[in-house]
C-alpha cells in the first residue's frame, strides 16, 4: 500500500509530458466520464486509462491500482444495485435499471480514479507544483501545500502502520473480526497520528521558512516546463475524448 504513491522514474512519453498537460488529460477523462451514460464509452475510457499506464511504462502498477479499486467497486456496485428501485424487477429486489446504473457509477469511479493515481506515479510532486506555478501562475504557497499533502500520504501510512504495530505490541488486538470493536481500538490511535502530523507539519514549515520560502517567485525554479509534441498530442486526445463523449453520450 505504501508504494502506491511512490514515483516510478522513466523516460516514457508520459514522463516527458508537461505536468500541466497531464492534469488537463486527467480532467478531460473525468469530464468525458461524466458527460456520458453509455456503458461502452465508459468501458472505452477505462481501456484508455489502462493504455495511459502502458504508455507510461507502469503497466503492472496500473493493473495493481485497478485491482485495488475493483474491491471498492464491487462493494459500491452491490449497494447501488440494491438501492435503485426503478425499472423492471429481475430477481429478489434487483432491477435492470439498478444494475445498469450501478455499472455506470462503478465504471465512472474507476475511470476517474485510475488516471489520477497513474499521473502521480509518473510525475514528481515538485514538478506538478512548479509547473502549476510557472504555467498557470498559481501562487507557490498553494502549489506547495498541494504537493506537500501528496508527499505526506506515504509517510502518513507508514506512521499509521508503525503506530498499529506499537499498539499490537502492547496487546491491542487488531485482528478481531468485530468491526465496531475494531473501530473502538482505532480511535485512540488517531491521537499519536495527529500529534506526529502536527509536529511534522510544523517542522516542515520551519525548514521551508529557514530556506527562504517567502522569497520564492514564479521565476525561482531552475527547471523550465515547456510544451512539445507529446503535449500537443495530449491536448488533441483530451479534446477528442470530451468531444467523443459529448457526441455519443
Amino acid at each position: 500500500m505504501t508504494d502506491l504513491f511512490q514515483v516510478v522514474p522513466g523516460n516514457s512519453p508520459l514522463h516527458r509530458m508537461n505536468p500541466v498537460t497531464k492534469i488537463v488529460l486527467t480532467l478531460a477523462v473525468s469530464v468525458a466520464a461524466f458527460l456520458t451514460d453509455n456503458l461502452f464509452v465508459l468501458l472505452f475510457l477505462l481501456a484508455f486509462d489502462l493504455m495511459i499506464g502502458v504508455v507510461g511504462g507502469v503497466t503492472r502498477k496500473a493493473f495493481s491500482i485497478f485491482k485495488g479499486l475493483l474491491k471498492v467497486s464491487v462493494f459500491l456496485f452491490i449497494l447501488q444495485a440494491l438501492f435503485v428501485r426503478r425499472g423492471n424487477r429481475l430477481f429478489w429486489i434487483v432491477t435492470d435499471e439498478g444494475l445498469l446504473t450501478a455499472a455506470a457509477v462503478v465504471l465512472r469511479l474507476l475511470v476517474v480514479c485510475l488516471p489520477l493515481a497513474l499521473i502521480m506515479t509518473v510525475t514528481q510532486p515538485s514538478d506538478i507544483a512548479n509547473s502549476l506555478v510557472q504555467v498557470l501562475h498559481l501562487p507557490y504557497a498553494y502549489a506547495f501545500t498541494l504537493t506537500t499533502a501528496i508527499r505526506f500520504i506515504p509517510q502518513f501510512m507508514e506512521e499509521m502502520s508503525g503506530i498499529m504495530e506499537a499498539q499490537t505490541a502492547r496487546g491491542v488486538e487488531f485482528d478481531t473480526k468485530n468491526a465496531a470493536k475494531k473501530l473502538g481500538m482505532l480511535l485512540p490511535l488517531c491521537v499519536p497520528l495527529l500529534i506526529s502530523s502536527v509536529r511534522r507539519t510544523g517542522a516542515t514549515a520551519t525548514a521551508a521558512k529557514a530556506r527562504g520560502f517567502e522569497l520564492r517567485t514564479r521565476q525561482s525554479g531552475y527547471k523550465r516546463y515547456g510544451f512539445g509534441a507529446v503535449d500537443l498530442m495530449g491536448f488533441l486526445v483530451s479534446a477528442a475524448l470530451i468531444a467523443g463523449a459529448a457526441l455519443i453520450r
Partner: peptide
C-alpha cells in the same frame, strides 16, 4: 516491547 519512537506508543 519498547519502540525506538515513544510517540508511536503513547495515545
Amino acid at each position: 516491547f519498547l519502540f525506538q519512537n515513544p510517540d508511536r506508543q503513547i495515545c
